[in-house]
């Protein structure tokens, strides 16, 4: 069973009398243990698609299924709950909170669950991405690659089923990008999760199990 499925998803924007279909009837799915890379020219709808998959946005028409459940009509708070428990996010700009330590940043998604203590898992995840000696550093004291590894650890804290990454290597040099991709590949297998990554980066395409190309809101197959 696919972790995440989009069925005939259309995302339509009305701006200044103009109608833009950022996504035009897209079908998409991702399975556990695979890395799907979404490529396409700027403005083709890659981020829009990723936002649908990540339950950050809902399609204008169409269905969204997470682990077989139809979540299309979930309320804002229900969607938030699903994101917290099943989806991990990695952003191009890392988006770590500067006043929190690496460990606290990793724990952030669980911060308000005061019953469970995820500190041990956070430290374990930081060890696994090679940051065991940077646990109490704050983001401004870390390099770009290190920050992105903290972000990956944060995405995994709640044992998600799918990890979404928008240009995860966009701000990193070739070598650092490669280590991040190695990291993601290892985690994909050890955690048995689906990874969906949006990229312009040729390098990332090489790591992909499957490539989806978007052109003007349509999937090219």
């Amino acid at each position: 069973m696919s972790v995440i499925v989009l069925e005939d998803a259309i995302k339509r924007y009305h701006t200044g009398g103009e109608v833009i279909d950022a996504l035009a009837s897209v079908n998409f799915r991702a399975d556990r243990g695979e890395m799907v890379t979404i490529i396409g020219p700027s403005g083709s709808g890659k981020s829009t698609l990723l936002n649908m998959i990540g339950l950050l946005d809902t399609p204008t028409t169409g269905r969204v299924r997470l682990n077989g459940r139809d979540v299309t009509n979930f309320s804002t708070d229900e969607l938030t709950e699903e994101r917290r428990s099943d989806i991990g996010f990695v952003f191009q700009d890392y988006h770590l909170l500067p006043m929190l330590t690496a460990t606290e940043n990793v724990e952030l998604p669980t911060m308000w669950d005061t019953e469970v203590d995820r500190r041990d898992r956070a430290i374990d995840l930081l060890n696994r991405v090679g940051l065991s000696d940077r646990l109490t550093h704050k983001p401004p004291q870390l390099s770009g690659g290190q920050r992105q590894r903290v972000a990956i650890a944060r995405a995994l804290i709640n044992e998600p089923d799918v990890l979404l990454a928008d240009e995860p290597t966009g701000n990193l040099d070739q070598d650092t990008g490669a280590t991040i991709l190695d990291e993601l590949t290892r985690l994909k297998e050890s955690e048995n999760i689906a990874i969906v990554a949006v990229t312009h980066d040729e390098q990332l395409v090489e790591y992909a199990d499957r490539v989806v190309e978007l052109v003007d809101g349509n999937i090219n197959t």
Binding site: D77, T80, E81, R84, G88, F89, H95, L108, P109, N158
Partner: peptide
Amino acid sequence: QGEIGVLRAVGITRGE
């Protein structure tokens, strides 16, 4: 705003 967007994205609820 961006930071709060990240909080919301990683599953922090509106109430929190």
